[in-house]
Design a protein around this nucleic acid. Structure first.
Lengths: 196, 196
DNA sequence: TATAAAAACTAATAAGCATTAGTTTTGCAG
DNA sequence: CTGCAAAACTAATGCTTATTAGTTTTTATA
């Protein structure tokens, strides 16, 4: 049967991982079989194991690639000198662009992480929790600096992160609105509210 | 072994369904086995079939119970004469209370619906889409009446629904903040924004 | 063109799955 | 206390699963 063809800069493992992300997204991790993945790759199931370690490792790869991307962006943000409101806006826009540009992977990281095995599950949750905490600090700083309204900072972070996550429902409407309008409207809504 | 004990107003089927919702929530539908469900109920797996039709029917029951609750509340809202902003606020508060009071079921309806079998899958998505459309109409009405800012109504609805859904992350912090503060802060954030 | 490594294949393993059939136990109504 | 229905049990069916072993084909290099 046909061999797995690696793209320009993508190893065969990368190709498999990408297809896996798409399948995990649409069917869920547990409902995706290696046979099925193999079929979309164009190969028999056992052949996959020449390139990957296990089904679990695929999920780990996806989840941590996403988690690390967010963590690294936050690192960069914390090293700049913009005011809190500006930094928050940049972070929101980064989240939105990740959702739009790496939909499958982000979706899987958001929805299927619970199928990670230990110790990866704990690591993932710790990293996530750390990320949240840093956002809460940013929010607290902004409230102290009177840039943000007086509000529970955790609720604010939760609301913003969740709103952005909701872009997963966006996919089917892509055609009707440009992603720039989408991004600007959502940012404005979160920063300034819906009421006039 | 121990018999299934029905509560005051709950049939045995209700007991099973409730335990199923908790398991589907924490492990996912596909990763939850009937053996496992049976164990938490205190019975052997085949005994469950004296009370339920199949694993799929459990999921259907959960998903449609939730969907119908939201639809019915919206029906009621549309028959009252408050202005758009007030109606929107009531709906947001209803969503929040559903998340807090029926967490397992709402979580399952939000996350595991994709494992519904046809024709239930299509029905569920249609009902959901209809619900969204009615919310968008409300939003458009409010924009036309100058109660809401000029914005893409779909983006606004998406943002609000997603923010509320995010309460699923709330569970571990329940103790630290009262649900009334949570509800009020989130409503305020969505209606008036975070920026001062 | 010969050789070695990479990667495909087929076949098999062992476990887990939802569900059905058939039987026994339980609990209540008379 | 008897008898019947509800609901438990055990055993079995047939299917799917991820993964391993062993073998053959393909690909690239020298």
């Amino acid at each position: 049967m046909a061999k797995i063809k690696p793209g320009k800069n993508a190893s065969k493992k990368d190709v498999i991982t990408k297809k896996a992300a798409a399948l995990f997204k649409s069917k869920g991790f547990s409902s995706t079989s290696m046979r099925e993945l193999a079929e979309t790759v164009g190969v028999e199931a056992p052949s996959l194991y020449n390139h990957i370690g296990s089904k679990s490792e695929l999920l780990q790869g996806i989840c941590f690639k996403v988690a690390n991307a967010f963590t690294m962006y936050l690192d960069a943000t914390e090293n700049n000198t913009d005011n809190h409101a500006t930094r928050l806006e940049h972070i929101i826009r980064f989240h939105i662009s990740m959702m739009l540009d790496h939909f499958d992977e982000v979706y899987v990281a958001n929805h299927e992480w619970k199928h990670l095995k230990e110790p990866y599950l704990s690591n993932f949750l710790m990293q996530r929790r750390g990320y949240e905490k840093r956002l809460i600090s940013l929010m607290e700083g902004g409230i102290a600096a009177k840039e943000f309204k007086q509000t529970n900072p955790y609720v604010a972070v939760l609301t913003i992160l969740s709103a952005v996550r909701g872009l997963e429902f966006w996919q089917q409407h892509k055609k009707n609105i440009s992603s720039q309008v989408l991004e600007d409207d959502m940012v404005s809504l979160l920063l300034k509210g819906i009421n006039k």
